[in-house]
Design a protein around this nucleic acid. Structure first.
Lengths: 96, 96
DNA sequence: TAAAGTAGTTTATAATATAAACCAAATTTT
DNA sequence: AAAATTTGGTTTATATTATAAACTACTTTA
């Protein structure tokens, strides 16, 4: 009847992060913070979870002298997102 | 950019309950439990939250001698659900 | 060099979801 | 008819989660 909603994606901020990353090659921490409107602390935690799940890659480098964290979605992440959307459909119908 | 996801609806079980109630005139506790696969305890709690939010009505009566709880979605509940779906679209695109 | 800003992380707290335990009445079994 | 089981739930305890606040480390500006 209802498909299970991947709890890692069924989170407002993590879903927003994934949504942004789906539409760009890569995005840095600041960009993600701006796009999602999240606090840095919350974003930091959620990025970590997505990375540990293998849904995104996280690279820490420097832009000049300032730290810069760059994120990108993985193929696994894309698949998980697609499955999540498919599962949602079982709750919502094609009406979405 | 991203619309807020009503936290009352952004819950797997509550969303499932709302989804069932959208498709029927009314449904009793047992039917909802069967359709959602939830435990009775969890369902009881989530029904309570939906009722307190004004998204469903809950009537407690008897079927013969056995207690029977009947739920139905309210107009407010329908609207909230529709808004939730619209908000989801901002995360998911029309792809849903 | 002091103050303020940047880019984050860690930690504490509050809210949530969930199942386990429980309850009362009805039904079934022995 | 007593005991055991089932039904239809509710309450409570626990574990997880989301979130912001506080903090760290470094850089830029005044």
């Amino acid at each position: 009847m209802f498909k299970e909603l991947n709890p890692l994606l069924h989170s407002e901020l993590r879903l927003a992060v994934m949504s942004v990353l789906l539409s760009v090659e890569s995005a840095d921490f600041v960009f993600l913070r701006e796009q999602t409107g999240a606090t840095a602390g919350n974003l930091s935690v959620q990025i970590d979870k997505l990375q540990k799940a293998g849904y995104i890659t996280v690279e820490k480098g420097f832009k000049g002298k300032m730290p810069r964290t760059t994120c990108a979605i993985t193929q696994e992440g894309v698949s998980a997102f697609e499955e999540y959307v498919a599962a949602l459909r079982s709750y919502i119908g094609k009406g979405l």
